[in-house]
Design a protein around this nucleic acid. Structure first.
Lengths: 198, 198
DNA sequence: GCCGATTGTGAATCTATATTCACAACAGGA
DNA sequence: TCCTGTTGTGAATATAGATTCACAATCGGC
């Protein structure tokens, strides 16, 4: 039975989303064009109507992740003013995002992606740096406002922010959800907060 | 030209080590039996004299990593007494270990490994937990001794310890060594230390 | 309603890799 | 020295999965 014909822009999004999903449940080694196609409800060869090949699909996934990460940064900056509140909320959103997309931490912090060409490696690097820059910006504002200690570089503070989640996210995934990442984030936040307040 | 005939125990170690090395330079997608064999100076089929297959090789790599991680924990416990010193030195050693084996953080915190069977996933989980338990033990001693704050679970403190390195390790790898992980660890240690002292 | 362009399909192809196997070389013990 | 078990080799096999292609269905504009 033939699938509905949809605009290539729509399909590209669907495909990237499907790949992201699959990357969460199985590793990159499992990620086959066939699996992605099935998830979308298409036949493998149809993928090539919308992407040059598997590599490009992975690139789109990376793009997608980058967008979502930055959307969170922008959201907290919009909704809150204090830098500490912003960071705390960003943490909440980050946990939420990870819970919905297990693949994110793995893809970003594992270079599973970087396997193919080295362009992807560079792009992954850039995506992470962009996110870190966003966090660091919040931190710097906090430092200017005297809410966050200024004797440590904003970059370092931003990176430790990511470090709050990363190990927990992995445990959460490896334990099939046993490990309570939300609680972990809450607990660790207290620690982190105390470490960075002025 | 035929390779020297060596005892299977030796070969197993060589093979695991070679795989670990390759996992560092290329991702898991690149890791082929052929590549491992070449690195050891053998022919692909020779691998099967010592391992059941690729999966088992990956298992051995995991084992290897676990041993090295725990060796560090034991070393700092042997060489130092204060819990803060122990943690600081463990951090040094951890950075060192990562610098020598890029694959470690990626393998451990990326579940690249967990792709195959779910036994590996469970084993990866156990390996990480074991390491975390080791760190947490140091932390608890510090809490008893009054060196480390007691109002936060030792587990959380141990996990953040890992979080100090993890993001930096990834950036270091993705940037091909541009990012200075050693400096990052030093800077972040100050932050972390302040966060956990009693 | 007709036409070109776009999207979907199924079969065929192509390649990379894991794995197997029969045979060769070698080690060490009897 | 001979025998047996172990390790290494190269060729052959098997398979999964990416990619291509000729053809069919569908859509939008005229």
């Amino acid at each position: 039975m033939a699938a509905e014909k949809l605009d290539t822009e729509i399909r590209r999004e669907q495909i990237a989303e499907a790949a992201l999903q699959l990357l969460g449940t199985h590793g990159i080694r499992q990620l086959s064009v066939a699996a992605v196609a099935e998830q979308v409800g298409l036949v493998p060869s149809a993928i090539y109507r919308h992407f040059e090949g598997k590599e490009e699909v992975l690139g789109a996934v990376l793009e997608l992740i980058g967008e979502r990460l930055m959307a969170n940064v922008e959201a907290v900056c919009r909704e809150w003013t204090g830098s500490l509140e912003r960071l705390e909320r960003l943490l909440d959103r980050h946990v939420q995002l990870i819970r919905e997309n297990q693949a994110i931490p793995r893809v970003m912090f594992s270079d599973e992606m970087a396997g193919g060409d080295s362009r992807r490696k560079a792009k992954t690097y850039e995506t992470i740096r962009t996110y870190l820059r966003g966090v660091a910006k919040i931190v710097r504002q906090g430092q200017k406002a005297g809410e966050i200690r200024s004797d440590v570089q904003a970059d370092a503070i931003a990176m430790l922010f990511v470090g709050i989640i990363q190990p927990g996210a992995v445990l959460w995934h490896l334990s099939d959800g046993q490990f309570d990442i939300t609680r972990h984030a809450k607990r660790t936040w207290r620690l982190y907060r105390d470490a960075i307040v002025a």
